[in-house]
């Protein structure tokens, strides 16, 4: 399957799963809300240019917003993590060996530890920014900001961990023949 087609399918699937499965989960607590949709941005191929990455993230975030009700709320954190992603990848993989031989970030292409750091940092940044905006709109206490960031990050990391276990992405080793 071509990379483009694969990512278009992912785009649609992530939005539908977030909108009609995870958003329908009854709330466990005020601070705990399951978010998984932004994994789409983390899984985009290495060779997407930085400007295109920003545009994709913006459109993706805005689409997600229309399904959840407040336009602009999720688009902003998506654009932020799309902007930070290339920096993080170049810090974690300075030798650029993986970028040349694998198509997208995964446990196999980056290694177990760098990939975890990559996911944890971007998840935390996404939630911190999202909750910060909600906090400013809502004028609730500082405990809300700390608590919701921590709660959402924990649940998201758990969901991402399960997703990685369930969908063992066979990232092809890129050869000259392909």
């Amino acid at each position: 399957m071509s990379n483009l087609l694969k990512n278009i399918i992912r785009f649609v699937l992530f939005i539908l799963v977030q909108a009609f499965v995870l958003n329908k989960v009854p709330p466990l607590h005020q601070f705990v809300k399951p978010y998984l949709y932004f994994l789409f941005i983390l899984w985009l191929p290495f060779n997407v240019s930085r400007s295109l990455l920003l545009l994709i993230a913006f459109v993706f975030g805005l689409m997600m917003d229309y399904f959840s009700g407040v336009p602009g709320l999720l688009a902003a954190p998506c654009v932020l993590i799309a902007y930070l992603r290339p920096f993080l990848i170049s810090i974690l993989l300075p030798q650029e060996a993986a970028e040349a031989s694998y198509s997208e970030p995964s446990i196999r292409s980056m290694g177990w530890a760098p990939y975890s750091v990559y996911v944890i940092i971007l998840t935390f940044v996404h939630h911190a920014f999202l909750v910060f905006i909600e906090w400013r709109m809502n004028f609730s206490g500082f405990v809300f900001f700390i608590g919701k960031t921590a709660g959402c990050t924990a649940v998201s990391l758990l969901l991402i961990f399960i997703t990685e276990l369930l969908f063992n992405r066979k990232t092809k080793f890129r050869t000259n023949a392909a």
Binding site: S51, G72, L73, A75, V79, Y83
Partner: peptide, 18 residues
């Protein structure tokens, strides 16, 4: 260019939100 694009898109998001 990338940084400006980032700022512009972030600005649009906030404009829509507000």
């Amino acid at each position: 260019f990338t940084f400006f694009l980032f700022l512009i898109l972030l600005g649009i998001s906030f404009a829509i939100l507000v």
